[in-house]
Each structure stands twice: as structure tokens, then as C-alpha cells.
Design a protein around this nucleic acid. Structure first.
Lengths: 232, 232
DNA sequence: AGTGGAGGAATACAGTGTATCGACATGAGA
DNA sequence: TCTCATGTCGATACACTGTATTCCTCCACT
């Protein structure tokens, strides 16, 4: 005679199926909440009801997880349809990158830190190149792309860095760079940094967004100047 | 009667005196040899014949050590005497920053990652501002400084990132971005990245140094254009 | 001579990335 | 239907991290 249900133990809980997508999503969630340093393989795995070692079937190193995370958010960057104007296209790409970094601040720590060879990373590069395609010889175009993205990479990184500093000290940007901790005040008071002092005291503080936009426009102006040269 | 020398034990080894300078030097040496991840408080301390906890008298967190390291190498950046020409001055600052990063590759991981408020960091900013002082109203000058340094920060970071990738894969830059791992080859073969494919196959590869210089010149051109506007 | 006090060192702790190993559920073959 | 090989998952293990705490030892001072 068979045992009743009550006698039979439950079958062992089948492990939740996993895939890279779920892993990356969990990692991104953790990073969004607590920054990059809050991402540990153990915590990611825990969020998926799995043991840490399970992840190594999908990833072979933590760095690879970071690569996947970057590529994932890069999907947010390329717009559905690109504007025809190259300038506008580049502007949009830059701004969307910035917005992605504002949504996921940890992106600033990773951006530019290693080549982005994932599908979405390549798509971003493709979009950038496509925007300028045919407007000059390839080498000029490449130089332009590199220059523009070097600019906005650097600018975004600094913006996030400042943002964190403000948050950490609890000071507004104005107060912060106006006198900052006693340290900067003291430094400026030494008179060894006259130009800096003048800038800090007499400069108007513009918000990060417009500062980013103006710098970008300058760079785009520079690109425009080179493009008008006759293509080879 | 006093004991002979042989009876008396050696006096306890007096701990080596420490200061930030020595600590930072040790940390930089470690980082130069094995990258940032080779820098651990234990290893730094060991190199100074001290216990790890000893460092906490001079530093209160590892991040602070990184700040000190950055500031230390920034001392290499400001030239003894600045060229009178603003363009040349900015160019020199950019190139010297790049060279510092080539000497200390870990700098690329830290540059722009947090505000540089150390004495040498401030000196760099001062020098940059001073180069443009009086050539336009303060706000324009600040925008210019931000733009230029955003550019070269980003460019340097990418350069180092590529350099590491080449080294890791053992491929020359040409071979690398021409076909890279099978992965990139496959991706390009899909036809989803036509502009990128064209760039990879038809583009001449220029060495990183001149690429950096050209981009920098473009940005400086842009700055020049804004400076010629009548100062407020 | 005793007694503070300070500062270095040892220990301790919670956590990390990753290698290794053991068990166990599942599929194939008899 | 039973057995055995297989491959996957979890537990365990290891070397190491940054940092808090505790303890000991030496020095200066009363």
C-alpha cells in the first residue's frame, strides 16, 4: 500500500532557473541602491535564491558581471530613431548617456574604464559613427567620435564625482566649492591660488546640466569646423 | 655587578618612524607594480615594517590613501614655468597629465573619480585657470577649463583602457580592433554595424599619442573661438 | 618608584572572490 | 524497473580584504 501524501516528503525544491538577464538585473538593482561596492556575488546570488557558486556558470569573473551591467544600461542610450542632423544626433547620444549615468550613478565608475564590446556598447558606437558617416573621410570621423565621447565621458564622470562630494559633505555645490571644508578655505586664504580664488568667489555657479550642454556644444563646434573640410 | 652585554637582551626594536610621505610612496610603488588592486593596507604597511593598524594614525580610510596618491602624482604635472601662450600652457598641462598616467596607469582609474582637493590638485587647477586668466570673463574661463579637462580626462582613461585590453589579449591595437576576439568579428559579420565595420576595416590606425593631440587641438580650437568674444 | 597615558601590535570580525569537493537528481541503457 | 554514469548545484574551504577593539609595553612625570 502506498504512503499517504502526509508521509511522503515534498520533493526537493527545484532550483530557480537562471539566466544572465536575471543575474544582471539583480546586480543592477543592488548597484542602484547601494553603489558599485554593494554588488557582491554573494548578494546577487542571494537575491536570486541561489548559492554564490551558481553564478559561475554564467560568468567567470566579477569583472565580467560589470561588463554585462554596463552593456545592459547602454541599451537605454541609443534612441529609437536618430535625428537626421548629425549635430543633433551626437547631442542626443551624449545627453542620453548622461541621463543613464544619473539614473545609475555607478555607471560613472565604469564608463570608459574598459572597452565596451557588448552588443549594446557596439550599437552605441555604431550610432555615433553613423551620425557622421559620409560627412568626412573615415579618419576624421573617427577622430571626431573619439573626441566627442572623450569629452562627455570625462564630463559625466566629474559631474557624478561632484554630486557625490556634495552629498557626502551635505553642502550645496555653491557652498561647497565656495568655501568647502575648512581645508579649501584655508588653502585659498594662503594666496597661493589667486586665479582659483577669483574663480570661486566671482564665478557664477551654473547647474551641471547646462554646463554639460555648453561644453558639448563647444566640442561640437570644433567638430563642425573640421567636417567642413572637403572629404578625401 | 652589572651584567655583561651577553646577558642583557637587545632593546626592543624601535618602530620605524612613519609619515604620510613614506606611506604614500610605498602605496604608489605597489600600484605601479601591480595596479590599484595590488594596493592593500596590509601590503603597504608590510613594506614599511609596520602593522596594518599603524596606518590608521595617518589615514582614516583606504580611500584617503588613494586621494593622497593622486595628489602626489599630480605634483609631476604642473611645469616649473608656464608658457606665456595660453594654448601652449593648456597643451602642456594636458600632455603632462597624460604622461603621468602612462607612468602610473592606475591614475586612470582614479582621475576624475573624485574632486582633487589636495595641494597639488589645487595647483593643477590653479595653473589651468591662470593660463586663461584675463582672456575672457570668469564664467567663460571656467567653462573652458572644465571642457578641456573633461576631454583629456576621458581621453586618457580610454587610452589606458585600450592599452590594458591589448595587453590582456596579446593583440596589437590594429589586430585587436580589426577583428579582436572572435566575438567582435562575429558581431561585425552580422551586418548590424555597418558604419563600425567600415571604420574598422578602412580606418587608418593612428597611434594613441597623436590621436590624443589632435583631439586636444580641436577642443583648444573651440576654446579659442569662444575666447575671442569680447570679455564682459 | 610608582602611575598615567599614549601608541603600536595582536587579535578579532565580517565580508570578499573564487577553487574544490561531495551529494544528489536526472537521463540513458539493460 | 533497476542501475549506473553524468552533470549540475550547494556546501565547504581558502586566502585575503578593510577596519574595530583589545592589550601590552614603554615613556614621562610626580
Amino acid at each position: 500500500m502506498t504512503m499517504t501524501v502526509w508521509d511522503r516528503p515534498e520533493p526537493p525544491a527545484r532550483p530557480v532557473p537562471l539566466d544572465r538577464e536575471r543575474i544582471v538585473a539583480a546586480a543592477i538593482a543592488l548597484a542602484d541602491e547601494g553603489g558599485l561596492e554593494a554588488v557582491s556575488l554573494r548578494k546577487v546570488a542571494a537575491r536570486l535564491n541561489a548559492g554564490p557558486m551558481r553564478l559561475y556558470g554564467y560568468i567567470s569573473t566579477k569583472e565580467e558581471l560589470f561588463d554585462l551591467m554596463v552593456d545592459e544600461v547602454q541599451a537605454e542610450i541609443v534612441p529609437e530613431e536618430q535625428p537626421g542632423d548629425w549635430r543633433e544626433a551626437l547631442r542626443v547620444l551624449a545627453h542620453r548617456t548622461r541621463q543613464a549615468a544619473l539614473r545609475h550613478e555607478w555607471l560613472a565608475d565604469l564608463l570608459g574604464g574598459r572597452p565596451a564590446l557588448g552588443p549594446n556598447g557596439l550599437a552605441v558606437t555604431e550610432a555615433t559613427l553613423a551620425a557622421l558617416d559620409g560627412l568626412a573621410d573615415i579618419d576624421t570621423v573617427m577622430r571626431a567620435v573619439e573626441t566627442v565621447s572623450a569629452y562627455f565621458t570625462g564630463a559625466i564622470r566629474r559631474e557624478i564625482a561632484n554630486l557625490r562630494a556634495e552629498r557626502a559633505t551635505g553642502l550645496s555645490k555653491r557652498d561647497w566649492q565656495r568655501a568647502s571644508g575648512p581645508h579649501v578655505t584655508r588653502m585659498l586664504a594662503t594666496g597661493r591660488f589667486p586665479a582659483l580664488a577669483k574663480a570661486v568667489y566671482d564665478g557664477t555657479d551654473v547647474d551641471a546640466g547646462t554646463s554639460f550642454a555648453t561644453g558639448l556644444d563647444w566640442v561640437l563646434d570644433a567638430v563642425a569646423a573640421k567636417l567642413t573640410r572637403p572629404p578625401a
